[in-house]
Design a protein around this nucleic acid. Structure first.
Length: 594
RNA sequence: GGGGACGUAGUUCAGCUGGUUAGAACGCAUGCCUGUCACGCAUGAGGCCGCGGGUUCGAGUCCCGUCGUCCCCGCCA
């Protein structure tokens, strides 16, 4: 097929911007053919670019050459159109598209490129499976919805740079080729050619570098930066993801919160949402108890309550030594035995020792617990949860009042809370509910490795008042760490750091990092702390998650141009892939097959 | 690492209790058509039923394995 050259023609307009006011203007448009409607001597082309679609008319009588070419055109051909914007005749308007009052009467048609039939239609509403979309991501990205998502992401980044810059933060790049650190996620490794047997690691976050900026006197730093973690994926987790990384010297937690709240307010305004400041604050302990989650969705009620029945009545029942109760208003008629049995299965897997429910009716209380607890026992539960007729009350229990059991119980309760909220459609659209979760525990006991691990990361400062319990009772030490939660999604987390080397060393010791090991891994950093580290702290915000929420997408893959699948592969370029043996030899590597 | 769902035409799907030539819609190709906009009408092409093995006279359908996609748990400081 003979193709035309663009030459020195410039686009005068974008397709989606033409309106009645442009009538009579000579224009030159270029884009992709979304559709061709061939009526014989009259051919309509829907011409599309990222701004939208406009109808082009090609008439065999008035422009025979253009018409000849239009007969050859197919979907997704790239064409240029020279013509005049004309008002559509009465009765031929198309109110469904923004440009529907006008059309472009083509005088010249340029065939700039042909295109194979795409594997799926380039339409906003796609029913195409995700793997097909990912294999042809460049076509998927041509769809209006993906254009909108990726452009929204760009706006969010622009807004962030403006906001942070306005508060005196400067963007500084940090290395991608760095060293592996103990603790935390599995590292992606990069073998060194010039030092065989040695490896770089891709950063899980620029944590240490940003702290070094504070020591270096760069007061306020931020960076929109890629991070890498070699862990299993989820709808909201990719092996490489983007953070707004922030650190400031001489911080108060409140000052940092204000800066970030202001940023979130601006980001939400990109989708015309107004948010009220300041955000709610909630301690970790209360979040776990009431919502069973450290990222509670506060768009709806449903709060769990610890339940103690007089006389230890409940704790006499197997699996209810510790009990939480949840009242679901008006749900009595909507729960079924079989439905609850299904919940029970998962709850058991998550570590809840027992679960039950009761429904309150005008005629009385119904529950399989009636025999075990008696009427007065059930009454006591109803009284404690303030349940009314028509309400459902769910009970969840653990066997022993141990930290581990209660945590499993909390986790199960959090899962069930979300299940019930979904089932009873308690989450009203249009709500944007933020919360800061504060006072996280400093350490988490890892029962497999029989040691404490940093819950946030090993550079987080303990609360000053807990310092003397660091060695004697690590579990009770709270950290100056915080998470930012939006609609049940963790969208950020950070902490005030340790700036004193003596405390940092003590924390390393609690984590089971010997002085030698700590020196080996973090020597440069511990050294740096000794040269006048200012008090400092910061936060990292998840760009992918935030933009996904703004875009109303349930997977972050929808806001990442080239995401990976759940097994961390790229279906388009087929990474990861094998490499030439010579490449391995250069690196001093040998593949051991299992 | 564990659990669940799915895999049939280019795409989205149907295909019953195993039984003759595997269907539909959209898309695609060819022809006709001057006011369509999901154009219409006519004709037509298009299938390794993910892959491998097994059971059976016979497998898209049953069994085992494997690969891939998605979701959840573990994991993700």
């Amino acid at each position: 097929m003979a193709l035309d050259l663009l030459g020195d023609r410039r686009r005068t307009h974008h397709c989606g911007e033409l309106r009645k006011a442009h009538t009579g203007q000579k224009v030159f448009l270029a884009g992709w053919v979304a559709r061709r409607r061939d009526l014989g001597n009259l051919i309509f082309l829907d011409l599309r670019d990222h701004t939208g679609v406009v109808q082009v008319v090609v008439n065999a009588e008035s422009s025979p050459e253009a018409h000849k070419k239009a007969e050859l055109v197919r979907s997704e051909f790239v064409v240029g159109v020279e013509g005049e914007v004309v008002l559509r005749a009465q009765g031929t308007l198309n109110p469904q598209i923004a440009t529907g009052e006008v059309e472009v009467k083509a005088s010249t048609l340029l065939l700039l490129n042909e295109a194979k039939t795409p594997p799926f239609p380039i339409e906003d509403e796609t029913r195409t499976s995700e793997d097909t979309r990912l294999r042809y991501r460049y076509l998927d990205l041509r769809r209006a919805r993906m254009q909108r998502n990726i452009r929204l992401r760009h706006q969010a980044c622009m807004e962030t740079r403006e906001h942070m810059g306005g508060h005196g933060f400067i963007e500084i790049e940090t290395p991608f080729m760095t060293r592996s650190t103990p603790e935390g996620a599995r590292d992606y490794l990069v073998p060194s050619r010039v030092r065989q047997g040695h490896f770089y690691a891709l950063p899980q976050s620029p944590q240490l570098f940003k702290q070094l900026f504070m020591i270096a006197g760069f007061d306020r730093y931020f960076q929109i930066v890629r991070c890498f973690r070699d862990e299993d994926l989820r709808a909201d987790r990719q092996p490489e993801f983007t953070q707004i990384d922030v650190e400031m010297a001489f911080p108060t937690r409140e000052e940092l919160f204000e800066i970030i709240e202001g940023l979130m307010q601006k980001l939400l305004s990109l989708v015309d949402v107004k948010v009220e400041l300041p955000f709610a604050r909630l301690s970790y302990d209360i979040a776990m108890e009431k919502y069973g989650s450290d990222k509670p969705d506060l768009r709806f009620g449903l709060e769990w309550k610890r339940l103690h029945l007089p006389g230890g009545k409940l704790s006499a029942v197997k699996g209810f030594q510790v009990t939480k109760a949840l009242r679901v208003p008006g749900a009595a008629a909507q729960i079924s035995r079989s439905q609850f049995d299904r919940y029970q299965e998962t709850l058991k897997q998550m570590g809840a020792a027992n679960s039950a429910y009761l429904i309150v009716t005008d005629a009385g209380i119904q529950s399989r617990m009636k025999n075990a607890l008696g009427d007065d026992g059930l009454q006591a539960i109803v009284a404690a949860t303030e349940a009314q007729a028509g309400d459902l009350v769910v009970l969840l229990g653990a066997e022993l009042d141990s930290v581990e059991n209660v945590r499993a119980l909390d986790q199960a309760s959090g899962w069930l809370r979300l299940e019930l909220a979904n089932k009873f459609e308690l989450i009203k659209p249009g709500l944007w509910t933020f919360a800061w979760i504060v006072d996280f525990p400093m350490f988490d006991y890892d029962k497999n490795e029989k040691r404490y691990a940093a819950m946030h990361h090993p550079f987080t400062s303990p609360r000053e008042e807990d310092l003397d319990k660091l060695e004697s009772d690590p579990s009770s030490v709270k950290a100056l760490a915080y998470d930012l939660v939006l609609n049940g999604s963790e969208i950020g987390g950070g902490s005030i750091r340790m700036h004193r080397p003596d405390i940092q060393k003590r924390v390393f010791r609690v984590l089971g990092l010997s002085d030698e090991k700590a020196r080996e891994r973090f020597g440069f950093f511990v050294d740096a702390l000794e040269y006048g580290a200012p008090p400092h702290g910061g936060i990292a915000l998840g760009v992918d998650r935030i933009v996904a929420l703004l875009a109303g997408e349930s997977s972050i893959r929808e806001v990442i141009a080239f995401p990976k699948t759940a097994s961390a592969t790229d279906l388009m370029c087929e990474a990861p892939a094998t490499v030439d043996p010579e490449q391995l030899t250069e690196l001093g590597l040998k593949i051991v097959k299992f």
